[in-house]
Design a protein around this nucleic acid. Structure first.
Length: 195
DNA sequence: CGCCCGATGTGCT
DNA sequence: GCACATCGGGCGT
């Protein structure tokens, strides 16, 4: 098991988003591991990116994005959903990668307590679905992803070749103006076994 | 299948 | 007030 070092996150956010594909997101609690392989991400980059939560400057909500790389930015939305991001880049430059989907592979019995009523393919195929599956909420906002202290981290995984990776515009930002609306900053791993 | 819409709380205008 | 980096149920095709 190799934890991703802080250096990994201290790079341009779209590069981090691409390189997170294939890595293993791990949640540890109650002596149990819940984990899955990251297969979909999105990059949000700076105050100039009008789809980014930092578009209007620093606020209490988005403050973690302005902090050091390798921490979790966890936010609440639509009155009921939590979403997980990994902060990237330099201090005072707000950027983060939204983790949009994983393939769950550890702790399936516990994940099924919350997701078992749906088909397995739908357990973690959305940003709020995977946080529900892995029991991630606002208590983890600001957690360090580079050690095991906070019960949430990311480990090395399989390298995913470019032939399996697609880049598309980000989703759920229809009201955002161009050019931000069309930036190809969503990265998907379309692995052979799922076709 | 696809589209539509209600749920539900918070942050910011 | 209102918009929101969403989800899941319902209904029509």
């Amino acid at each position: 098991m190799i934890l991703l070092p802080r250096d990994f996150y201290d790079q341009e956010v779209t590069l981090v988003a691409r390189r997170l594909l294939g890595k293993r997101l791990v949640r540890s609690l109650d002596g149990m591991r819940l984990a899955g392989t990251i297969v979909e991400t999105e990059a949000y980059r700076g105050e100039e990116d009008l789809a980014c939560h930092a578009k209007s400057g620093r606020t209490p909500r988005n403050a973690v994005m302005y902090g050091p790389a390798g921490h979790a930015y966890v936010y609440f939305t639509y009155g009921m959903h939590w979403c997980l991001n990994a902060v990237t880049g330099a201090v005072d430059y707000p950027a983060a990668v939204l983790i949009r989907a994983i393939h769950p592979c550890e702790g399936l019995e516990d994940i099924a307590l919350r997701r078992g009523r749906f088909p397995r393919s739908q357990w973690c195929n959305g940003p709020a679905k995977l946080t529900q599956a892995l029991r991630i909420d606002g208590n983890l906002n600001g957690a360090s992803l580079c050690d095991q202290h906070d019960g949430l981290w990311i480990e090395e995984g399989e390298e995913i070749d470019n032939q399996w990776v697609k880049a598309t515009p980000r989703v759920g930002i229809d009201s955002v103006p161009e050019p931000w609306k069309s930036k190809p900053w969503r990265f998907l791993a379309e692995l052979p076994e799922e076709q």
